[in-house]
Structures are given as C-alpha cells and as structure tokens.
Amino acid sequence: MPKIVIANTLADGFVAFLRTDGTWSRDIVEGALATTDAEAEALLAEATQAAHENRVLDPYLIEVAANAAGNLRPIEYREYIRAFGPSVAIPA
C-alpha cells in the first residue's frame, strides 16, 4: 500500500503533507508518495527530523490509494477527515 507522511505545521497547527523536496504542503496531492517500505522509512526519517527541528508536530505515515478519478485519498476515515476537513459544513 502506498504511503504519505502527514503532520501539523508548528506555527499554525494546520495539517500538512511532506513533499519530495522536504517542504510541507496543505494539499495531499502534493505529498511525496512512498511505494516501498524503504521509501516509507526514508520519508518518515525526514519528517521526524523536521519535528526535531520544530517545523512540524507529530508526523506519521498514512496509507493512501487512488480513487476512481486517480487522486490519492487516505484509506482510514480519520486520516481522510484530517486531509479534507470536517465532513460537515462549517458554520458560516
């Protein structure tokens, strides 16, 4: 199962995904994709370093799969909600 690293960025706390260049994106489609265990380990090591450097909080790997439209989506519902926000309309 392909994996992506999810975390929260320190200063604003918002959910972010690790890009291939080591920066962080709000958008899951920009996340670096690990397709092997070795790639996943390398991504997590990079993210853990970012946490040590106080750029992000609590990074971990999540499993993703492409949906019918070919876009990557988290498998677990909890991570889906983290990636795309509450499943209910925000009061406006």
Partner: peptide, 12 residues
C-alpha cells in the same frame, strides 16, 4: 495545556 491550548485533528 495550562492555558487551554490543545492540538486536535486539524489544528490547535
């Protein structure tokens, strides 16, 4: 936490 600030799913 002593000031009521948590970290939740999406943000603080």
């Amino acid at each position: 936490l002593m000031n009521g600030l948590y970290l939740q799913l999406h943000a603080y």
